[in-house]
Amino acid sequence: MVGLSAINPQFLYVCAGIFLFAIGLWGTWLHAHYVRKIISLNVMGAGVFLTLIAVAYRGEHLPPDPVPHALVLTGIVVAVSATALALVIIRRLEDATDE
């Protein structure tokens, strides 16, 4: 128990964020199907957002820096807009019969 409390949460979550970023990048790069690329891209984005929020974290007793929180909110909305467009293009491509 005492050993675990020595883990700095900021360190832990920054590492997790970077890991998500890396695996998302890997998936976006290598997947052939675009639905999978989009999922990977969102994992990658989640990684960036997590890193940013972990940087803003200042421990249990201090309020976090609000600026990264605002940036991540903006980022989430932008990501979902792009995801929506991409998914509709994918749907349309699966329907399209002209060649």
Partner: peptide, 30 residues
């Protein structure tokens, strides 16, 4: 949950509603 843990309730709310909720609905639509 992670956002809530890191004292980011705004993002937790947005993630649940927009990220997982709406993103999920969009994915399911495909």
């Amino acid at each position: 949950l992670v956002w809530a843990r890191l004292h980011a309730p705004d993002i937790a709310l947005a993630e649940a509603a927009i990220g997982a909720g709406l993103g999920g609905a969009l994915l399911m639509a495909t």
